[in-house]
Nucleic acid binder design. Structure first.
Ligand code: FES
Ligand code: FES
Lengths: 140, 140
DNA sequence: CAAAAACTTGACTATTTTAGTCGGGTATAT
DNA sequence: ATATACCCGACTAAAATAGTCAAGTTTTTG
């Protein structure tokens, strides 16, 4: 039950941007240095964030990335979805013919996992990027 | 963000037991046949369930496993914990010196992941095995 | 214009985790 | 006795993860 680092770094990097940007673009190099994330890895992550309209890019010198939505509007769920991280705790497809057990009927636990997924999804749906920043001063 | 099959099968198998046992032991062979889970895999899973006092075993002919608690009392969380599935969405240890980023201070997103873990944990804490069985008749 | 900063993209790889299997046990009811 | 069923450690193939590399393109600035 682990979140992958890509998603974690994505949230981390966007939180960093929310803190350090005032309309100006934030370069991945800066994020990399501040958050200790590999620059090459960040590039890969931001590619997806860009494709999914979470950020837009500014090329050339003094370039970087800019959040498209404000931190108050940006749902954490949007970030996860951008990285193909559907919240799906088990592999069973809702629509598909095949259930998790390969049979045509749903297994005894199916509804439970659906509930779980919904529960987690709601959390990510309701949390905004700005919520992450709130208790920042509480630490260190 | 996937649950592993071991945990899923464990919940599935225990739900099966809750349905098919009336004080008598349920053999893994029966569970295997009913739920379509490999017998060998089930053995591995039940070994852990036994070690963690979720079930007790009866050896020999007509043997099998018996739930220690009633389905009403058995938390899903207990099942997951038995399989070493702590709900810990990121690798950062709360107590350890090292944070997720290797620095001494907590990263900007740390509190958020803590909240997430708590949110998911609560779900598993409040759900009982019996809750899984409720809407069984709603299907098929 | 030239050079440097910074984004763009696909492919590639080492490591780790997962999802099992295998083999050889031991206990017990009939 | 013997079949049934639990016990347990070790092993492995396959998939996922985390991250790197190479080779660009675009834009700003001196
Ligand atoms: S059939 Fe959907 S989880 Fe098993
Ligand atoms: S998640 Fe704990 S320091 Fe980053």
């Amino acid at each position: 039950m682990k979140l992958n680092t890509k998603s974690r770094y994505a949230v981390m990097a966007l939180a960093d941007m929310a803190v350090f940007s005032r309309d100006n673009a934030v370069s991945l190099r800066d994020i990399s240095l501040r958050q200790g994330i590999s620059l090459l890895y960040l590039e890969q992550i931001f590619l997806k964030l860009k494709k999914n309209n979470i950020v837009k890019s500014v090329r050339g010198i003094n370039g970087g990335y800019i959040l498209i939505k404000t931190p108050k509007e940006l749902k954490i769920l949007d970030i996860l979805l951008a990285l193909d991280q559907k919240v799906k705790t088990v592999g069973c497809k809702k629509d598909s013919k095949k259930s998790c057990n390969g049979k045509s009927t749903k297994c005894i636990t199916h509804n439970f996992w659906d509930e779980l997924d919904f529960h987690i999804n709601s959390f990510f749906e309701n949390k905004k990027l700005s919520d992450l920043l709130k208790n920042k001063e509480a630490r260190h």
